[in-house]
Design a protein around this nucleic acid. Structure first.
Lengths: 202, 202
DNA sequence: GTCTATACACGGATAGAC
DNA sequence: GTCTATCCGTGTATAGAC
């Protein structure tokens, strides 16, 4: 019993190493450009070893996508929930923006992988993943609608479009940000400033 | 002389058909996912025909990238230049936002292709293309700095980061927008509203 | 200029030993 | 569980006819 548990744990760890490696390689090379041998090597094994854990490249990428949204949603919700009761709806939106940026730039290889490869995976994989994606979109929809209901944001905006513009600004950071000139927190600060308050002088 | 000119013109047209096809296929499938046979078929020829016009897949994608930024920059600058003399720096920024969005969503297959595949092409192709990309970035840098110099936008922002956040919000529309609920012009309007004025009530 | 035929390399996936 | 060996489909690229 103990032995088999230990074995299971080791297997669990290897599977995770493999997923971690897959997230990084998919993010860097894209779906079609990522080779299973690159992923295997990064996880310290050879190509066929992958097939002990996942039946195909498609199922591997699917799991990366799934973990990506799940962790992102969890982290963003946690940050929003961690605010004081007195926080305004706009403050909650700011917290979500900051959380999402930190996941993309610092914490989440799975998050950045998800962002970069979602548009490249085979149609059936993307179709199966759409539900998870929409659930995360729902978090943002609620934040925006709360803010509008509370009169904290303008009433003349199409919140569906605004939601995608916000996520676009944040997701695109995965394409250009390199640590150095600015920290991820600074990028998040610029984002909340522009999105909530605009560039124009007040 | 006439004969050879006619031949050259036809060749020129075929080359353009091929590039048009390449832009669409690269945009839809990504760089690695795009097959030369897909591109050739869409252009009404067979795979080897491609090699009469381009020596390799890399040089083909390079040309698509080049045309993409060139046209985008041209169109955006044209729109900005078309404004009345009395236009403010913020109005000029709004015109650039609208122009860029229209290129991504309606006019420019090469623009959307560029956006979606730039991060996927082989390193040497991307390196050769960086100069063009930066030149277009310069257009936006100038617009933002003019606005700041004129006191039309807040002085506490990092314009380098802001520039990338703006382009991110606009570029990401290529990932989610489908004609239907909103027109491209409406998306552009939401973008200018959020970016220049912010979500918060004034 | 564009075709058919084909060389050639590569990457996903399987077989079977250990 | 992970290895070596290998199959096989696919995609870039070339040869050479028309």
């Amino acid at each position: 019993m103990v032995r088999s548990e230990a074995r299971t744990r080791k297997s669990e760890e290897t599977r995770e190493r493999l997923l971690d490696a897959a997230a990084k390689v998919f993010r860097d090379k894209g779906y079609a450009g990522a080779r299973l041998c690159d992923i295997a090597e990064r996880a310290g094994m050879h190509t066929p070893g992958v097939y002990y854990y996942f039946p195909s490249k498609e199922e591997l990428v699917e799991e990366v996508l799934r973990v990506g949204v799940a962790r992102t949603r969890g982290y963003v919700q946690e940050r929003v929930a961690g605010l004081a009761e007195s926080a305004s709806a706009l403050d909650r939106l700011r917290a979500a923006i900051e959380g999402h940026v930190l996941m993309v730039l610092e914490i989440g290889d799975y998050t950045s992988a998800n962002i970069r490869i979602f548009g490249q995976v085979p149609d059936d994989v993307r179709a199966r993943h759409l539900g998870d994606q929409r659930a995360y979109g729902g978090v943002w929809r609620a934040l925006l609608e709360d803010a509008r209901a509370g009169g904290e944001i303008r009433s003349d905006l199409d919140l569906g479009v605004i939601r995608m513009l916000i996520l676009g600004a944040l997701n695109w950071t995965a394409e250009w940000y390199r640590p150095g000139p600015q920290t991820a927190t600074e990028v998040a600060r610029e984002a909340t400033a522009m999105i909530c308050d605009g560039l124009g002088v007040r």
